[in-house]
C-alpha cells in the first residue's frame, strides 16, 4: 500500500484523538471511583460513630446513602444535650440534627478546644474529691459516644454534676 503523507498524518492525528478521549474518560472514571470510595468511607465512619441506621441505595456514581437515627443515636444525643444545657458554650447543633446532616453535626463536636474547656470546667465545678489525672478533650468524646469513663475519675464527676445517676451499692 502506498499512502500519501497527508493520509498518514491524518491517521496519526485520528489515533491521537482516540487515545486522548480514552485517557480523558479513563481519568474521569478513576477520579469518580476515588470520590465514591471516599464518600463510602465517610458514611461508614458516621454510621459507626453515631450508631445510625443506613440504607445504601447506590454505591457508585453517585453514592446514595440515607441515614436515620437509631435509639442508640438518641442516647448519644441525650448525653451531648445534657452537657450543653449546663455548659452553653459546649455547642449542641440542634438544626443540623433536625436536618439529619450528620457530617455537620460531627464537625461541631470535633472542636478540641471546646471539649477541653468544658471538661476543665466540669472538674472545677465538681464538689467531689478525685484521684489521678484530669481528663483531656477525648474524655468527653468517650463519654458521649461510648459512655466510657476515661480516666475513671470522670464517672464520679459526672455523677456529682447530675449527668449520671449514682452507682447502685452492691
Amino acid at each position: 500500500m502506498n499512502l500519501s503523507l497527508k493520509y498518514k498524518v491524518l491517521m496519526i492525528f485520528m489515533l491521537l484523538v482516540f487515545i486522548g478521549v480514552f485517557l480523558y474518560y479513563y481519568g474521569a472514571k478513576v477520579r469518580q471511583e476515588e470520590a465514591d470510595a471516599e464518600a463510602l468511607r465517610d458514611y461508614s465512619y458516621i454510621v459507626r460513630e453515631y450508631a445510625l441506621d443506613a440504607v445504601y441505595k447506590s454505591k457508585e456514581n453517585p453514592v446514595e446513602v440515607e441515614l436515620y437515627p437509631s435509639a442508640y443515636t438518641e442516647a448519644i444525643l441525650e448525653r451531648w444535650k445534657a452537657i450543653s444545657d449546663r455548659y452553653p458554650e459546649f455547642e449542641y447543633p440542634e438544626a443540623a440534627i433536625e436536618e439529619g446532616d450528620w457530617f455537620k453535626v460531627n464537625r461541631v463536636i470535633k472542636d478540641a478546644e471546646m471539649l477541653k474547656d468544658t471538661v476543665d470546667k466540669m472538674y472545677e465545678d465538681a464538689t467531689v474529691e478525685f484521684e489521678g489525672l484530669k481528663g483531656s478533650f477525648t474524655t468527653l468524646l468517650d463519654y458521649i459516644f461510648y459512655q466510657k469513663y476515661e480516666p475513671s475519675n470522670i464517672e464520679d464527676i459526672l455523677i456529682d454534676l447530675g449527668f449520671e445517676s449514682p452507682r447502685e451499692e452492691e
Binding site: V47, A51, L52, D53, A54, V55, Y56, K57, K59, S70, A71, Y72, T73
Partner: peptide, 11 residues
Amino acid sequence: QFVEAISNRME
C-alpha cells in the same frame, strides 16, 4: 451485582 443494603443498629 449489588442492588441495595440496609444496616440497622441493634445492641
